[in-house]
């Protein structure tokens, strides 16, 4: 009974996190802020759900598989986010109009003036 309550709490938290992430994906104004909403929440939710799965089955082989999934997502999600964010930035996606500052633009401008 205790374990069922724990699993329920984990699953509900995960689904609420995912729901917030998708609301954020819909509402937020530009690419980097949208990625803030999705990448971490996706990883977090998968970790929570997989923990619930491990608790539910309570078997060694399942737990090993669950740990593999969690580690894999934790390693790959930031790499994918970095790749997409960089590619999007370089291909000229506009940042939000209220963005406070943009040091990366300065950096690329400096580099262009250096090389030319």
């Amino acid at each position: 009974m205790m374990i069922e309550i724990l699993i329920s709490v984990l699953l509900l938290t995960a689904s609420i996190v995912v729901l917030l992430a998708s609301i954020g994906l819909l509402r937020l104004p530009d690419l980097p802020t949208r990625m803030h909403a999705t990448t971490k929440s996706g990883v977090f939710a998968i970790a929570l759900i997989m923990l619930a799965v491990a608790l539910y089955f309570a078997r060694v082989d399942i737990t090993a598989r669950v740990l593999a999934i969690i580690t894999f997502t934790f390693v790959t999600a930031p790499i994918a986010a970095h790749a997409i964010g960089r590619a999007g930035y370089l291909s000229g996606v506009k940042l939000w109009s209220k963005t406070v500052r943009d040091d990366l633009k300065d950096y690329y401008n400096e580099k262009d003036t250096d090389s030319s």
């Binding site: 690419l31 999705t38 939710a45 759900i49 997989m50 619930a52 799965v53 994918a80 997409i84 999007g88």
Partner: peptide
């Protein structure tokens, strides 16, 4: 890129759904 980000979130959600279905 926006679409790709959405696609990634969809993949995460479906993976989560698979976990819930397993339970």
């Amino acid at each position: 890129p926006d679409r790709v980000v959405a696609l990634e979130l969809i993949a995460s959600i479906v993976a989560g759904m698979v976990g819930v279905h397993a339970i």
